[in-house]
Computed example of a mutant assay.
Amino acid sequence: MNSTEPAGGGAFSLDTTVPGAVSRGFDSFLREWETRIGDGFPQPAYSPATTGDFRVKGRAAKVNDVAITDFHCVSPLQTTGTLGDIEDQVRMYVVRRGAWALGETPGRGEHTVAAGQFLLRHVGRPAHFRTVPHTTAKILVLPAAMLKPLLGNRSVIGPANSAEVRLLAAHANMIHATMAGLSPAGVEAARSTLIELTKAVAKRRFDDVEPRLAPALAQAAKDLANSRLADPELSPTMLARELNVSVRTLQRAFAETGESLTAYIRHRRLEEARLALTAPSGHLSISELAAHWQFADSSHFTRAFKKHYGQTPTRYRRSTQPTGRG
C-alpha cells in the first residue's frame, strides 16, 4: 500500500487481491480513505458480503475539493442501509469493464453504467450502488458550484472513449502519477484543470484555446498513440480526429513536451522494436519488425534504430543474447 499527502490533497493506492490481504482489505481501504481523502468525501455503508470479501485493486486522490478513485473490483461491491443526508456534489462514473448500477434502493429502480460508458450528473442525495465482479471504473466527485449551472437536472451519458473523456482521464492519471510532488499551487492547478475538463464533457466540446488543458491533450494523444503503435493509419491527423481537435491545436499542445508528435510516435515504435529484439522466444526477423512497426523497409528501420541507439538492430540483438546462445 502506498500513501502520499501533499499540501491541499492526499493519495493512496492499495491491492487487496494479493494473498493474505483479503482478510484485512476493507479495513485497510477505509482507514486509508479516512486518513488521506478526508471527511468531505464520506464512504457509504457497505453490505456484509462486500466488507467480508473486499478484493479490490485501486487508488484514490484528493485534489482540494475533488476526489478521484480508480477501482478494479475482483469481488462485487454493494452498499446497504439508510442513505445519508442531501449532498451537493457532481459525480462522474467512467466504466471500462463490468457495470456500475446506481439507484434509490439496492436492486430496484437502478440506472446501470455499462462497460464503455460514462455518466455525469449532479447528485441531490446519495444513491446506493452495486457492481458486478471484475468491474473497472474511474469515479470523480466534484464540487457542484461550478458545474451545477451547466448540468441542471440532466444526466450526461455517452461513450467512455469520447475525446473529452479521454482528456479528462489522461489528466486524472497524471495527477495520480505526480501527486506526491505537487506544491499547493500545483494542486490548485490540477484541480482547476479537472473542473475545466469536466465542463468539456458536459458540453461535449473541448476548449482548444484554454492553455491549462494543453498537458491533458498531449497526454491523451500519447495514450492513444501508445495503444495504436502498430496501426499503419497512426498519424497526427488521425489522433487529432480521434481527440476532436485540429492538427494545429494538437501539435501546439504537444510542442510543450519538447518534441513533435511525429517524433514521439517514431521513438515509441523504436522502443517497442528494441524490446522485441530481445524477446526470449518467437524472434521476428529485422524485415518483419520493420513491417510490424510501420517502417518503410528494413533499411529505413536499421538507419533509424542505429541513429537512436548507436548500433544496428542485428548488433543490438547479438549483444543482448546470453553467453553461449547461438
Rank of each mutant, 00 (worst) to 15 (best):
A7T: 12
A11I: 06
S13K: 09
S13Q: 11
V18W: 04
A21Q: 06
S23G: 11
F29Y: 09
R31M: 10
W33I: 12
T35D: 15
G40M: 09
A45G: 12
A45P: 01
P48G: 03
T51I: 13
T51R: 07
G52T: 09
R55I: 09
K57F: 04
A67D: 05
I68P: 05
D70W: 14
S75V: 02
L83N: 02
D85S: 15
E87I: 14
D88E: 14
V90P: 00
R91T: 13
M92P: 00
V94M: 10
V94K: 01
R96I: 09
R97D: 13
R97H: 11
G103H: 07
G103P: 04
E104R: 12
T105M: 13
P106E: 03
R108I: 14
G109A: 04
H111F: 14
V113G: 01
V113N: 02
A114F: 11
A114V: 15
H122D: 14
G124Q: 14
P126W: 08
P126N: 09
A127H: 13
T136G: 02
L140M: 10
L142Q: 04
A145S: 08
A145H: 13
A145T: 13
M146V: 11
M146E: 15
K148P: 06
N153T: 11
A160T: 07
N161S: 14
N161M: 09
S162M: 03
A163Q: 05
V165M: 06
R166F: 05
L168H: 00
L168M: 04
M174C: 02
I175N: 02
H176E: 14
T178V: 09
P184K: 05
A185H: 07
G186Q: 02
E188G: 03
A190S: 10
S192T: 12
R204A: 10
F206K: 04
F206P: 02
D208A: 11
E210F: 12
P211W: 06
P211G: 04
P211R: 06
P215R: 03
A216S: 09
A216K: 03
Q219L: 08
A220Q: 08
D223M: 13
L224F: 09
D231W: 07
E233R: 06
T237E: 07
M238L: 13
A240G: 03
A240R: 01
R241M: 05
L243Y: 00
V245N: 00
V247Y: 03
T249Q: 03
L250P: 01
R252Q: 06
A263T: 13
H267D: 12
L270K: 02
E271W: 08
L277M: 12
L277D: 12
T278P: 00
P280W: 00
G282W: 05
G282D: 11
H283Q: 14
S285L: 04
E288M: 09
E288H: 07
H292W: 12
T302S: 10
A304D: 12
A304H: 11
K306G: 10
K307M: 12
Y309W: 08
Q311T: 15
P313M: 06
R318P: 02
Q321A: 09
P322F: 01
